[in-house]
Amino acid sequence: MYKLLIADDEYEIRNGLSSYFPWEDIGFEVVGQAANGIEVLEFITDHSVDVILSDIRMPEMSGIDIAKKLFEQNSTIQIVFLSGYKDFHYAQQAINYGVKNYISKPTKYSELSSTFIRIKERLDQKPNSKVSSQQESTSDKIVETIKKYVNEHYKEASLEGASQLVHMNPYYISKYFKEKTSGNFSDYVVSIKMNKAAELLLDMKLKIYEISEMVGYSNSKNFTRSFRKHYGKTPKEYRNEE
């Protein structure tokens, strides 16, 4: 998880952003809050932070001042500004300090999500051996957990079910699984169902419609269609050849 600090002089805004947005679903952990720029600098002195989500206008020390300070320190911390329409020209100053990300107020879920997904993708590409190793280990565990869930619950396996285990939203799991395995979650579920069906077909006491139900198909025609697509033959043909 990348570490995120949220800064805004309005408590309701910073607390709302911290508490009610599913940061962990997109790879971020909120490690602190700050009411102004001075608190931001104090916090990052003692804590590791990857990204700062900050209101551009704050008392005592503004978001621009934070960006300037970090730029002078050659800091690798990325800044995302929350800015209203009236702050547009003011925000232009931040370009000189390497700030590229802006989110308009009032904050929209879709804009917040898309912005931080892009930031995570950039952070993932940074050549940091220790971080990369930790992320790879975490990725392996998540994918392993999802696959284990499908193997044990293939009959009713779903993105929603997997999401409860790895604490990610279903849409992100679908994207994440494909990114890490080069295959779709739904295709993986079907392949497990078909492999199990092939095993069950070796038991001559079981009817094909019973096997269909055992692997999660209430309609035997849909089961036959999926099986043929997977193995190139119908369940009956497969059974007769074994």
Rank of each mutant, 00 (worst) to 15 (best):
E210K: 10
S75G: 03
V99C: 05
Y97L: 03
E242Y: 12
M214W: 12
K108T: 14
K155D: 11
V150D: 02
N169T: 10
D140C: 13
N101Y: 12
E60W: 11
D203N: 15
S83A: 01
L17C: 01
E241V: 07
S137F: 07
T76P: 09
V189Y: 09
N195P: 12
N101M: 12
Q92R: 02
A197Q: 09
Y171H: 14
D46T: 12
I211Q: 03
S75W: 05
G32E: 05
F81I: 00
L70S: 04
S163W: 10
G161K: 03
M58F: 02
N195D: 13
E111G: 10
Y85Q: 03
K233Y: 12
V131L: 15
K148E: 07
V150S: 01
M58A: 02
Y209K: 13
L53R: 08
L70F: 06
F223D: 06
S186I: 11
K205W: 05
I95R: 04
G183T: 15
E136N: 15
K147D: 12
S104N: 11
I117V: 10
G63H: 00
T76F: 09
E241M: 09
K155H: 11
P170T: 08
I56D: 00
V99H: 00
K178R: 14
Y97G: 00
F28W: 08
K108Q: 14
D50S: 02
L123A: 07
N184R: 15
V131G: 12
F21V: 00
A91K: 00
K100W: 07
A91W: 02
T45M: 11
